[in-house]
Design a binder for these strands. Structure first.
Lengths: 327, 327
DNA sequence: CTGAAAGCGCTAACAT
DNA sequence: ATGTTAGCGCTTTCAG
């Protein structure tokens, strides 16, 4: 910095001003400084900036390296933070690196706000964090004092799935649920509500499912056995749906000819060409924008009632849904 | 820090000594300081430590959030760095955040070494980086001055695939390749070499393939048409293998009864129960250890000829390989 | 083991 | 518009 100042024939303060683009430097000076910096390929030391500054303009993000969807979120968070003038510090959770540790690492960097993707921490621990700094939890439903929650509207996701099927002409629509998995309860509600609204209360049937292919296999067998007239299924997630697809086809049932199947997540599996699964996708961009927006607003002093921001997911129509034969 | 020193009845310097576990503090004092710190729940400011210190003990890691395998590597890198006494700073590459930018962010943090996972940068740019600091490229084959390369032995991967098939009794083994994709050339070599060694030169056949399911579909059709007596296939990757599986089965060929298929990558697709693909997996732990080891060694002043560290992959036997009928 | 003091590379309030 | 001057929270050297 010294060198740059010298080369540009100004004081260090001026260089600082230029780099913070603070008021107090003429355009010509600005240009001269920047030019000098370029020649020396000077780059301000990020650590020192953070140290000296009151506000670090740093948002800490904790995520699971393993979760593909977290990857999408991280991507969107970078973009959203950038727009808001914040930097992002990433801290991954892994088997050898638990959540408290990942969070602590971020605190040691003195980030101003925390964005936690699908954290395992209990509500109490989250509330403690929130007491110290703006904390927003993404993709997990929790109620903890002071923490903001941004998540997808799981109930609406199933509503969309059901409405899509209804619009195709289906009536006997079954939901294979996720048991006690996060989001499962809401998806059940969404399913039931949508069915009722469509005037098909008598066809409501929630089959116990789960998160794995095997769960899908079991559920498909049960449906074939107990309700062979079923024409459509909305599964808890893509994996479960894939297990069902496989079982249905092995049983000689044409999909989507005789049976329509909808998954949930729009994971990489759903896009495989021989799977080609109609599914419900989350909106990482929107989730990220809201999360960053909320953290930043809190930092700017805005106070909110602790509530949830709920984002509608969206239907991705592929090849496993069609009009029923009877229609 | 001041407060901790006061509370423990020592000088600030002592607190610093304790936290760096530098020599010059008795065990009792050490304990007292730590206790005082705990009560005040004091945590040293990471930024300040880095600033004040000569060595930052920081390793920068650039990776793609989208790549599932990078996730595994990141996980292993954390562990390896930890063992070596280094911290890790993550910087993700995403559509809105290109590689130069991700790298620059790390440099601004003044990390001491760079670990790049499958970078796109051209050799020249990498060499420039390497001139400034230890730089190791993981999972991409490049030759650039001063940069260390750590990667899987793709040639050996196909050797293992072929030997596995040979040991089952296969002779007519085809390789569906990856064209100009990274690693494809080596896999071809590994295939051919292994076939020759097994005395089956006359059965060597490399079918043009690709990275997608559709490529697998096309290749499978061609094989069925042009060489129906083929009993086994080693595909370029899992996706391609899955496309083949699907096509073969649709054509009425039993897998693995009439045809064995081996994939490559051990991706999440391979593990799906209805896919259950025998495949070749990389060793993220070993790759990470070597990468960190190399960076640290360079930082410790060890000089190496710029060469590659090559890690053998490993065969994951699942359900798509079996002895051929004729055997 | 202590206490003082310089410095890391910036920011930011204040004076010119 | 530009220069001066303290810090930021720690490390590190050095004489006690």
């Amino acid at each position: 910095m010294e060198d740059v100042a010298a080369k540009a024939g100004v004081s260090r303060a001026l260089v600082s001003i230029v780099y913070r683009d603070a008021p107090g430097a003429s355009d010509t000076t600005r240009a001269r400084v920047l030019e000098a910096a370029a020649e020396l390929d000077y780059r301000p030391d990020h650590r020192a900036r953070l140290l000296g500054r009151q506000r670090t303009k740093l948002l800490g993000v904790v995520y699971g390296v393993r979760h593909a969807f977290h990857g999408d979120l991280v991507e969107a968070l970078y973009a959203a933070a950038d727009l808001a003038g914040y930097d992002v510090a990433l801290s991954a959770v892994a088997p050898t690196r638990d959540e408290p540790r990942a969070i602590q690492a971020l605190l040691d960097y003195r980030c101003e706000g925390l964005i936690l993707l699908g954290p395992d921490q209990r509500a109490k621990a989250l509330a403690e964090l929130a007491a110290a700094m703006p904390t927003v939890v993404v993709a997990r439903k929790v109620t903890a004092d002071g923490v903001d929650v941004v998540r997808s509207d799981d109930s609406d996701g199933l509503r969309q799935a059901v409405e899509h099927l209804v619009s195709l002409g289906h009536r006997r629509i079954v939901h294979v649920d996720g048991g006690r998995a996060p989001g499962a309860a809401e998806r059940r509600v969404g399913y039931k509500t949508a069915m009722r609204r469509a005037g098909m209360s008598e066809h409501i049937w929630v089959v116990g499912g789960g998160l794995t292919e095997d769960d899908g296999v079991a559920a498909a067998k049960r449906i074939l056995r107990e309700a062979p007239r079923t024409t459509a299924v909305a599964a808890f997630n893509d994996k479960c749906a894939i297990g069902m697809l496989d079982t249905l086809r092995k049983a000689g049932r044409d999909v989507p000819g005789e049976m329509s199947v909808v998954g949930y997540d729009d994971s990489n599996l759903a896009g495989l060409s021989h799977v080609d699964l109609t599914t419900i996708g989350q909106d990482p961009k929107r989730l990220a924008e809201l999360a960053v927006g909320r953290a930043v607003a809190r930092l700017d002093g805005d106070v909110f009632a602790d509530d949830e921001l709920v984002v509608p997911p969206s239907l991705v129509v592929r090849g496993t849904t069609a009009a029923p034969k009877e229609a």
